[in-house]
Amino acid sequence: LAGIPSNVPGAVTLEKLTSYKDITSYNNFYEFGTDKGDPAANAHTLKTTPWTVEVEGLVKKPAKYTLEDLLKLSPQEDRIYRLRCVEGWSMVIPWVGYSLSELIKKVEPLGSAKYVEFVTLADPKTMPFVGSRVLDWPYVEGLRMDEALHPLALLTFGLYGEVLPNQDGAPVRMVVPWKYGFKSAKSLVKIRFTDKQPATAWNKAAANEYGFYSNVNPNVDHPRWSQATERRIGEDGLFAKRRKTLMFNGYEAQVGQLYAGMDLKKYI
């Protein structure tokens, strides 16, 4: 899956890439199991063809897109983003995709649309842990409209120049680099425009731990651990120090204005 260089500010970090092996073997994708190795072991059962994504809700042009339509909707770009997991580890990943805003423009949201909701596939036949009580399936995530329209919010189809491996959210997923990783829903089947803040999976499970915004923020700790530092997967040796976590995962210059005037200790 070839991409062209991106002109979006902040789209390419020059940091050392995390290895393909680590990106594809250390995953949180609870539909396939709760261990980091489970998705790589179990996700081969996921069937990604044929695949459709329904775009619905408060839009002028709701539509059912086939994956082929989506792939061609806008030129694929190479983006190299930092990924910061809420658990305190991070990676640098070369994604392939285009800004979600390209799709949003096509479906013409109504003035009343304030949020975008992302729904992940929940197929108990191909996803062995759908049905476990860990989360309320399907996995739902959401963004405020201005966040969803930000050019860094990436509708993602590939990594390392290849189509997404199943365990990384094939065939199409979101990547929102300034938020904790769980905000980026995988294996999308539905994108819904709403006037109410979506009830998202982790927020429903534990609202005091996983806020709707969940912007990467070293100054607001998770109740069970500090978010001030992170461990960069693969790069640092076992005994290397953890690195400092950056505000908005280092994307403050690009996205800081979205949250001007908001108390980020309150809106976690």
Binding site: K21, D22, S25, Y26, K36, G37, W89, R231, I233, G234, L238
Partner: peptide, 15 residues
């Protein structure tokens, strides 16, 4: 495992 890179992507967490 620790000396042969056998503890996966996040050896510290594994240990």
């Amino acid at each position: 495992g620790a000396f042969t890179d056998g503890l996966g992507a996040n050896p510290a967490e594994y240990l």
